[in-house]
Design a protein around this nucleic acid. Structure first.
Lengths: 186, 186
DNA sequence: CCGAGAAGTCAACAGATGATGGCCAACGGA
DNA sequence: TCCGTTGGCCATCATCTGTTGACTTCTCGG
C-alpha cells in the first residue's frame, strides 16, 4: 500500500488532534469522536488509520526526551543542566504536550504506565552514565523530584508552583537533583 | 428520615468498595456497577445513598492529612519528621488508599484537582506555620517533591523507587524537604 | 398483629462509546 | 479516456454508562 501526500496529511492531523485531546482530557475521556471532530474528519478514519483507540494512543506517546549526555558535563553543573533541560521540554509546545499526554494517561492506564517506566529506565537511567554507582536508584530519585514538579505545575496547576518562573525554579531544584545524581546516598 | 444500623452498614460498605475501585482504576474507569458488585449491592442503591457518582466520589476523598505542627519541632528535624509522616500516610491501609484515589483522580478530573489544590493550600501550607516567609512557595516545592515520590512509588511503581525501604527513603528525601522548608530560597 | 415506612430488587431508559462495512468521489497511471 | 486504487463519509451495530421509577420484602412501633 502506497501512502499519498494527502493521506499522510490527514494522518498527521489526526495525530495532532489526538495529542491535544489526550493531553487535555486523559485517555478515557478523550473520545475518538472528539479527536475526529478536531481533525475535521470522520471518526471511522481514525480507526482505519490507527487500528484502534489504543493504537492511536501508542502512536501519540512516542516520545524522545533528548537528554544530553550528563557524563560529559562538569560534575557540579549536572543538576542545573538536567533541570533546565527538563523544564524546557515541558514548557515547549510539541514535546511538552506529549509529556502531558504520557503523565496524564500513565496514572490510570497500565500500558501507558509501562511505557513511562520504560522511558525512565532507559533514557533517564542511561543519561546518568552507566558507570555511576546506584544508577537506577538515583534515576528514580531524580524522576520523583522532576515528575512531582511537572505534576504540580502542569497537571494539578498548584498556583504557587505555576507562579514561579522557569529560571527561579531551576535555581531551587538544581541542588536537589545535583545531590541525587552525584552525592553519596548513604 | 431516620437511619437504621443496617443502612449505615451498607452505606459504609459502598464507601469502602468505592475507595478500592477509585484507587485501583481512577474516576472514569471505576463504574457504579463495579462498585456495587464489590459491595454486594444493587447499583441503584449507590445512587440512592450518594445521589450520583460525583457525590460518591466526593465522600470517598474526604481526607485529613493529620500533619503535625512543624513549627513546634526542632528546626533541623522538620524535614525528617515531615517525610516520615507522609510516607506513613501512604503506606498505611486506610488513608493511603484515599490518597491514591485523590492523586489518581486529580490527574484527569478537574474537581478532584481542585480538591487537591485546596488540601495542599490549607493543610500543607498551614502546617509550615503562617509566619514563614514565602510559605506557599515552600509548600509547593515540598508538595512537588513528596507527590512526585508518591507518584513514582505508588502509582507508576518505578521498580527502583518501590525497592527502597521507607527509612532509607526518609534519609534521602529529608534533606531536600528540610531545605525547601527552612533554607533561604534565593 | 398489623400497617407504615424504610431497605432492597428488578427492569428499563436515554445517551454515549468504540468499532464495522458498504457506498460514493477523487486521483493517477495506462 | 478509462478503470483500479485509494480517501472519505454515512448509517449502523453491540455494548456500556449513569440514572430512574415501580415493585417487593423486611423491620419495628403501636
Amino acid at each position: 500500500m502506497a501512502f499519498t501526500a494527502r493521506s499522510e496529511e490527514t494522518r498527521a492531523a489526526i495525530l495532532a488532534a489526538a495529542r491535544r485531546r489526550f493531553a487535555a482530557d486523559g485517555y478515557e475521556r478523550a473520545t475518538v469522536r472528539a479527536i475526529a471532530a478536531d481533525a475535521d474528519i470522520d471518526p471511522s478514519m481514525v480507526i482505519r488509520y490507527y487500528g484502534s483507540k489504543e493504537g492511536l494512543f501508542a502512536a501519540a506517546v512516542d516520545v524522545d526526551l533528548r537528554l544530553p549526555d550528563l557524563a560529559a558535563l562538569p560534575p557540579d553543573r549536572v543538576g542545573e543542566v538536567f533541570v533546565r533541560h527538563f523544564l524546557a521540554l515541558w514548557e515547549g509546545p510539541g514535546p511538552g504536550e506529549v509529556l502531558t499526554v504520557l503523565l496524564r494517561s500513565a496514572v490510570t492506564n497500565e500500558s501507558a504506565a509501562e511505557r513511562m517506566r520504560m522511558i525512565f529506565a532507559t533514557q533517564v537511567a542511561t543519561a546518568l552514565g552507566p558507570s555511576v554507582e546506584d544508577g537506577p536508584t538515583r534515576a528514580a530519585l531524580v524522576a520523583g523530584q522532576v515528575l512531582g514538579v511537572a505534576l504540580c505545575r502542569y497537571i494539578l496547576r498548584l498556583p504557587p508552583m505555576v507562579a514561579l518562573d522557569a529560571e527561579t525554579l531551576v535555581a531551587y531544584l538544581a541542588p536537589t537533583v545535583q545531590r541525587y545524581i552525584g552525592a553519596p546516598l548513604a
